[in-house]
């Protein structure tokens, strides 16, 4: 995949069409997050495959990190278990490949920047594209430092999904959305990953502010954990992102089979949720 004359092989176009299809169906897309290698590589693949079968449109595969500063205790625990189990970047890529082959769905990797940088930006992008991946969500890579990644993402047909926050200025939102692709990840609140009792009202305002800068779909994450919250967010966003609640299904389960079953059931609930938004959806654009 190193020759510049070869066409991109990543699945950015599949990500775009998946989000467009959800919009055409007057609903939000459901995006679910689970870390690779948790509780084991194979059991993690089983859980992701179950989520896809139960109605997830898009998967974020987490790349476990030794210093997950943006994650709350649940995902920290999952990352620690995965790393103690010896998970490597090669296992993350294997998870991406298996999930895509099983479902044909777009699969993203969510990762802190250092593993990509250390592994080699070009090498990571080429191998992710070859595994059928659709791109990366990069929560600690600021747009100002992202040129090296974006060059490789474009070359390999991968999405660059940036995370924006309620505190982002309009000027920064415009710069971030101008350089991103796939969709924009709007963090619903100021904080780390984890479930919250109430979805933040800041999310709706942030989605409106992002829409003023871009035609990219805007998906909302952080704190969404059940079907009612998913339905509420689906009323104003193009996608609903759920992570911690699904990771907790696996953490709390008495065994792996029960954990996978719990992921399947919660995902099915969430898939119902994104289809029953009671707010009028925006008119589809041609």
């Amino acid at each position: 995949m190193t020759s510049t004359s070869q066409p991109p092989t990543g699945n950015l176009a599949l990500l775009d069409s998946t989000l467009a299809r959800a919009k055409a169906e007057h609903r939000a897309a459901l995006i679910t997050y689970l870390p690779a290698g948790f509780p084991t590589v194979d059991a993690g693949i089983d859980a992701i495959t179950a989520a896809l079968a139960a109605g997830a449109d898009i998967i974020e595969v987490g790349l476990p990190h030794s210093d997950p500063v943006l994650d709350g205790p649940v995902i920290q625990t999952a990352d620690t278990i995965a790393l103690r189990g010896g998970v490597k970047i090669a296992d993350v890529l294997r998870t991406v490949r298996a999930a895509h082959q099983a479902s044909g769905a777009p699969i993203l990797v969510m990762t802190y920047w250092n593993p990509v940088d250390r592994y080699g930006v070009e090498r990571f992008a080429a191998e992710l594209a070859a595994a059928g991946g659709a791109g990366c969500v990069l929560p600690d890579l600021p747009v100002e430092e992202s040129a090296a990644w974006r060059e490789q993402a474009e070359k390999h047909g991968l999405a660059t999904v940036f995370v924006v926050a309620p505190s982002s200025t309009d000027e920064r939102l415009a710069s971030i959305t101008a350089h991103g692709s796939g969709f924009v990840y709007a963090a619903s609140l100021m904080g780390v990953t984890g479930t919250r009792a109430v979805a933040s009202t800041a999310a709706r305002t942030l989605v409106e502010r992002v829409r003023a800068t871009t035609d990219l779909p805007v998906c909302v994450g952080l704190g969404v954990s059940d079907a009612d919250q998913a339905a509420e967010v689906a009323g104003f966003a193009d996608g609903v992102i759920v992570g911690t609640a699904l990771v907790r299904c696996l953490l709390d389960a008495p065994d792996q089979a029960a954990g996978v079953q719990a992921v399947r059931e919660l995902t099915a609930d969430l898939a119902d949720g994104v289809r029953r938004s009671d707010t009028p959806v925006p008119q589809p654009t041609s």
């Binding site: 929560p139 600690d140 600021p142 430092e145 926050a165 309620p166 505190s167 200025t169 971030i176 963090a187």
Partner: peptide, 10 residues
């Protein structure tokens, strides 16, 4: 540089 989440940039 400033490799930090967007929430802290402001």
């Amino acid at each position: 540089g400033r490799f930090m989440p967007e929430a802290l940039m402001d």
